[in-house]
């Protein structure tokens, strides 16, 4: 099973995207846990969960370096969600991106 963590400012806007991604994952029988947190909770989450991929909302792009630094020893890929996909809340596409990152 793969764990996908989405991060945005205060966890405000990613929850809808999460539910759309979960739907997409269920439709294709992809064994995964997908959840969203605000930037400040991300740290503790990273410690308590075996996160496989970390995706950022475009509005927190400026935190990318910081996260890369934090997770570098765990070899977790970090990526900013594409602006089109984010704007359209396209769960399928973001899930597909997450899968590519996992390869």
């Amino acid at each position: 099973m793969k764990t996908i963590m989405l991060v945005c400012s205060a966890g405000m806007s990613t929850s809808l995207l999460v539910s759309k991604m979960q739907k997409a994952a269920a439709a294709e029988n992809y064994d995964s846990e997908i959840f969203a947190v605000g930037a400040s909770e991300a740290d503790s989450m990273l410690e308590s969960k075996p996160v496989d991929v970390l995706m950022l909302g475009p509005q927190v792009r400026f935190m990318k370096d910081e996260f890369e630094k934090k997770v570098a020893d765990k070899d977790i890929p970090v990526e900013v969600i594409n602006m089109q996909d984010y704007g359209m809340m396209n769960g399928e596409k973001v899930l597909a991106t997450a899968k590519t990152l996992l390869k």
Binding site: C8, S9, A10, M12, S13, G57, P58, Q59, V60, R61, M83, Y86, G87, M89
Partner: peptide, 8 residues
Amino acid sequence: IIVGIMMH
């Protein structure tokens, strides 16, 4: 970034 802020 604006798209992200809009969602937020």
